[in-house]
Amino acid sequence: MDETAPVGERGGIARRAGGHIMLGLLGLLCVFPIYWLYATSLRAPQDVYELSVLPWPLSLDSYADAMAKNDVAGMLLNTAIVAVLSALGQLLIGLLAAYAFAAWRFPLQRPLYLLFVGTWLVPFQATMLPNYALLGQLGLLETLAGVIIPTLCSTLGVLLLREHLMSFPKELLDAARMDGRSAWGILWTVVVPTLRPVLAALGILLAITAWNEYFWPAMVLQRSNAVIQLGLRSFMGTEGNDWGPLMATAGLACLPVFALYLFLQRHIVNAFVRSGLK
């Protein structure tokens, strides 16, 4: 037994090493497209089609070109506004709805909740035209408000927050009620402080989703490229793609998300784990 142990250990080490090498390779595979994006954006304009792994000489011309052709800073600001307002709105509505579904009993509660779940099954493309027509009637086409408002109610938010609130100790709510707190007071002084990690995680997830949104802004904003994802498309067209500034803009569009990830890594991983998404 003693003789076999080291062999087993060696096998274990080899297996572990093999696993790590495999993971490392898979990691490289995932990172490579992002590396290629930045490599292409840093090539000189005449080298944009080169296939060398290390771009040389380095050049910022593509970034200058992108900034000259599009108001990249304005686009980033607009996208940030859309992402933040959309995430905050979804959090607020999600919180109120989830609180109602979890902490209260009212007629037709279950069917109403299932209706909410049901809306998750309807793809965005099916509701796109009615939403577009409604925005047209409200005069909100071509505005950032038109991009934000239809996204304000997120089933994911309601679902996730309700699940968390269901596991929330009822005794705490009862105790607060006996203390004479109003439902509104309980929500903000008892529920929200306890849910803070979940709200933070969900908020980040929703903001990243809104930041990356492309389809809906492309419908609403026909007369401008106000958000960065639309700015990206403006370098593609019938006469071929302008890869340098396209990659430069894409590189800039990724930076805020990377920064968010760097500072709030734990929350983001948490968000993905909690939502069951990958």
């Binding site: 779940v117 099954l121 309807v122």
Partner: peptide, 20 residues
Amino acid sequence: FLSTACAASALALTMLTAAC
């Protein structure tokens, strides 16, 4: 109930897309 809801949603969806 869920499967009924699913079926109802699917039906609604079909009608919607047909309308589109």
